[in-house]
Write a protein that binds this DNA or RNA. Structure first.
Length: 299
DNA sequence: GCCCAGGATATCG
DNA sequence: CGATATCATGGG
């Protein structure tokens, strides 16, 4: 059954902070988390594998595959380990961010409080695009509801130990539907078009994570994303931050960021965009990390 | 009932 | 180019 694998953690890494983030919504449908473990389906070459991840006393992580009747082969284990390292951005050296943030007036309290947090990623480009689109101009609670309806309607699932675990729908599946179908899930007409449009681009092979990563720089990737209907600057930077892993991505228009800055600055009103740009200028190529830490002041 | 929400696009002046 | 209208629905 469960040959556990151990995943060594990097220097500045606190799994408790990651768990806090993973537990921020009780309506999350793509994994099941509690204060000390998280369980989800992970891609591993062939069929997705159910993995349960928990922290060990020495700080390392343990991953096991509880649903398998035979021990997973080496290839599967390697895929699982790679997925986890990518999910939690474990191969990034955060010393630059810590040095910068600890002497920044706005960021210092947040990095003291959430030290060891890393940007929790969305490895699947289609999922990242859809989650961004779904989250446009609505409150986060409703965005989670939309995602759940979408996943439970079009995704694949595995039942284990009395629970159902879901994978995010493949673009090929969504490319084939009539956008009007999503109206029934309470998508707006536009969001339905955006999601199906992105699915079709990916199904046609015009858009892919590898293709975006092959572009020469972050500016080129941002341009390629904002050229897609429904992907504006906010969604593009959100995807750059959580999927393509640009630590300098910065969703300037993000309402959550605005409210977090209001808290961090002790203001009555959200700071104007020009002030936010000035505050963020010293954050340089760590703006995504600064944003992710600031978000934790709210959720 | 009201205001806000992890925005984007189309249209105007 | 910058400002404005429109979308469209739930959560608090």
């Amino acid at each position: 059954m469960a040959a556990a694998i151990t995943i060594e953690t990097p220097g500045v890494f606190d799994f408790a902070q990651i768990f806090d983030y993973l537990n921020r919504s009780a309506n999350e449908c793509l994994y099941e988390a509690d204060a000390a473990s998280v369980t989800r389906l992970m891609p591993a070459g062939g069929a997705p594998v159910l993995v349960r991840l928990s922290a060990r006393a020495d700080g390392a992580l343990t991953a096991e595959c509880p649903a398998l009747t035979e021990p997973p082969d080496d290839e599967t284990l390697r895929a699982v380990a790679a997925y986890i390292r990518e999910w939690f951005d474990m191969d990034r050296d955060l010393s630059g961010f810590l040095a910068l943030a600890s002497r920044d007036e706005v960021l210092a309290p947040a990095v003291r409080r959430f030290r060891g947090l890393r940007i929790v990623g969305i490895a699947d480009l289609f999922e990242a695009l859809c989650w961004g689109i779904m989250g446009q101009q609505i409150n986060l609670a409703f965005a989670y509801t939309l995602k759940r309806r979408f996943v439970e309607r079009y995704g694949d699932s595995v039942r284990w130990n009395g629970r159902v675990y879901w994978t995010f729908p493949a673009p090929e599946r969504i490319a084939a539907i009539d956008p009007a179908e999503l109206r029934g899930l309470q998508f707006t007409g536009r969001k339905a078009e955006y999601v199906v449009g992105a699915a079709r681009l990916m199904a046609e092979g015009v858009l892919s994570k590898a293709g975006l990563l092959a572009l020469p720089d972050w500016t080129a990737r941002e341009k390629a994303l904002t050229a897609i209907r429904g992907i504006g600057p906010w969604t593009a930077h959100y995807v750059l931050m959580r999927c393509l892993r640009n630590p300098g991505a910065f969703p300037l228009e993000d309402v959550g960021l605005h409210n977090a800055l209001k808290v961090a600055l002790g203001r009555e009103e959200k700071p104007p965009l020009a002030e936010i740009q000035a505050l963020a200028a010293p954050w340089g190529e760590w703006k995504a990390y600064a944003t992710f830490y600031l978000w934790r002041l709210l959720y």
